[in-house]
């Protein structure tokens, strides 16, 4: 198992997967902020006055961190940001799930609607595990060591 997890092709594959997940998720939200406003509002976790700022900023953090992570640039830092985002999203989903609120999470806009639920939390936990594995097993990129 350890061999598989530290295999360079496995690491490359998961890095590409995670990078693309965040880039695509960010682009979808950036291109349709109105849908993301509806999704964030449905969670009922943020004061209404702050929802729009959240919607304007968070997708860009997802996008830029995903892009840098994909190309292994400052991946320790971007990986940490991505884990932070995933923890934040998981808490939001868990709270909505416990409140028995049912709606699509808006994680990928309306293009890939995903229901709030345990499956979404499990997905996020798997992503967190994969990012942590990459951070542990990959040396930092040359760019930041120069």
């Amino acid at each position: 198992m350890k061999k598989v997890l530290s295999n360079k092709y496995f690491l490359l594959g998961t890095r590409v997967l995670i990078g693309l997940v965040f880039i695509i998720s960010g682009i979808i939200k950036i291109s349709n902020p109105h849908d993301f406003v509806d999704a964030v509002t449905n969670f009922k976790m943020l004061p209404p006055e702050t929802v729009n700022l959240f919607v304007i900023i968070i997708p860009w953090i997802e996008f830029s961190s995903g892009l840098l992570f994909l190309f292994n640039i400052y991946s320790k830092e971007t990986g940490t940001i991505l884990i932070g985002l995933l923890i934040m999203f998981s808490i939001a989903v868990a709270v909505a799930f416990l409140r028995s609120i049912t709606f699509t999470c808006g994680c990928f806009g309306d293009i890939f609607p995903q229901e709030i639920g345990l499956l979404k939390i499990v997905e996020n936990l798997i992503l967190i595990g994969l990012i942590a594995n990459i951070l542990i097993n990959t040396p930092q990129n040359t760019l930041e060591n120069k």
């Binding site: 109105h34 406003v37 700022l53 900023i57 860009w60 961190s65």
Partner: peptide, 27 residues
């Protein structure tokens, strides 16, 4: 980390100012 987040915030604000699909900063 702080720089990456600040640059992303700046990009988000600038994009929202110039985008045709922008939303108000405060609803």
């Amino acid at each position: 980390i702080l720089i990456i987040i600040l640059v992303s915030v700046a990009m988000g604000i600038i994009y929202n100012l110039i985008s045709l699909n922008s939303i108000p900063f405060f609803p």
